[in-house]
């Protein structure tokens, strides 16, 4: 697999991680589940998924480049990823619905 695909994977993981953290917030959870307040265990699971995805992306960066460059790539990848997550919540929040498949059917 060429390096470019690994970097795509880094960005995907960062987006996934930030989106999970966002979904664990009441404000964004309601965009997808308007009727039901978020349950405490759901919050914790979403945060755990977010942390795992971010940790995995960082590990991948460290595997791809020298540690100094890897840390910068990871921190800087947060910028477009956070913008993408934010704008998706602004215009197409339903795109994140698959991330909540395990929480049961949509009300």
């Amino acid at each position: 697999m060429p390096d470019a695909l690994f970097y795509v994977l880094v960005v995907v993981l960062v987006v996934l991680g930030l989106a999970s953290f966002a979904l664990a917030m009441e404000r964004h959870w309601r965009q997808l589940r308007p009727g039901s307040p978020i349950a405490r265990p759901t919050t914790l699971v979403l945060r755990a998924i977010g942390a795992t995805a971010l940790a995995a992306s960082l590990a991948l960066c460290l595997w791809l480049d020298h540690g100094t460059i890897a840390s910068l790539v990871w921190v800087m990848a947060l910028v477009p990823a956070a913008l993408a997550v934010t704008f998706t919540f602004s215009w197409r929040p339903q795109w994140f619905a698959p991330l909540l498949w395990w929480t049961g059917t949509r009300p």
Binding site: L18, A22, M25, R27, H28, V75, M76, L78, V79, A82, L83, V85, T86, F87, F89, S90, W91
Partner: peptide, 28 residues
Amino acid sequence: LFTFRPRKQPQRRLLDLHNLTGVVALPF
């Protein structure tokens, strides 16, 4: 952190965008 409300009044939209671009790239 992940908030941008494009359908609110201009002041709100501008402040959201100002905060967003400032905060997500804060380390940078």
